[in-house]
């Protein structure tokens, strides 16, 4: 395995585009985790039973760990992480609630549940 890594490192250095893509990918991972956390939060609006609430805490925790891992990898890749926004589910609460409301109506494939279309709500 060692020679392969030995070869990979200079290739990565020689291909800045790939490195940028990696950084973008990792930043997207952090953002997706924010969306997932907003969705987990919105799912809990109507059910606060102990097992479900605890389960949501654990799911949210897993997303935070995912963000932490992505940031650590980004730092290891030499990415500029200043634009990464971990722990920012608040920006996606509005679309998450819209989706949860549709799902409560039984509309499980609502367009508002397509996370890739969710946009960040700007701070007032």
């Amino acid at each position: 395995m060692k020679p392969a890594i030995f070869l990979l490192v200079p290739i990565m250095c020689a291909l800045p585009v790939v490195a940028e893509e990696r950084c973008q990918y990792l930043e997207d991972q952090v953002d997706q985790a924010n969306k997932a956390m907003a969705s987990i939060f919105a799912d809990g609006i109507t059910d606060n039973s102990a097992p479900r609430e605890t389960n949501r805490q654990i799911k949210e925790l897993n997303q935070k760990i995912k963000q932490q891992t992505a940031i650590q990898l980004a730092i290891a890749e030499g990415c500029d992480t200043s634009s990464f926004l971990p722990n920012d589910m608040g920006s996606y609460i509005t679309p998450a609630l819209e989706c949860a409301t549709e799902q409560l109506k039984g509309n499980y494939k609502a367009a508002s549940c397509e996370m890739s279309n969710w946009t960040r709500s700007e701070e007032e």
Partner: peptide
């Protein structure tokens, strides 16, 4: 959560 947040 607190454990993760203090590392981030």
């Amino acid at each position: 959560h607190m454990m993760v947040e203090r590392v981030s």
